[in-house]
Amino acid sequence: MSTPWAAVLLVGLGTVVIKAAGVLLLSGSSSRVRSAARFEHLAPAVLAALVVTASLSDGSRLVLDERSAGLAAAAAVLARRGPLFLAVGTAALVTALLRQL
């Protein structure tokens, strides 16, 4: 098997198993109340960590670059209760313009 196809197979298999692990370990009738209480803070923590890794890191380095400025602009839109698509568009526009400089 060629290396690309081996990667397709192994990465696919690994990801399918990771994503299915919850279903394989927990039945549909397991306690939803307990589950919700336990994972109440998962979404804010993971989303905040993703913001950091997607805007301030380049591999294993911390960087401040055009993306960081774009994110700051998006934060300003969101702080004024602007809609999500406007925040995302602003981040892309600011980043693209700064890269043209």
Binding site: H41, P44, L47, V51, A54, S55, E66, G70, L78, A92
Partner: peptide, 30 residues
């Protein structure tokens, strides 16, 4: 600039959750 769109998207999905103090602490810790 589309690589900057994803952190902005994640921030936008996070924003409505952090009005509650404990969720805000969880986000800061994350």
């Amino acid at each position: 600039g589309l690589d900057a769109a994803f952190p902005a998207l994640f921030l936008g999905l996070l924003a409505p959750r952090v009005r509650e103090p404990r969720a805000r602490r969880a986000a800061a810790a994350g």
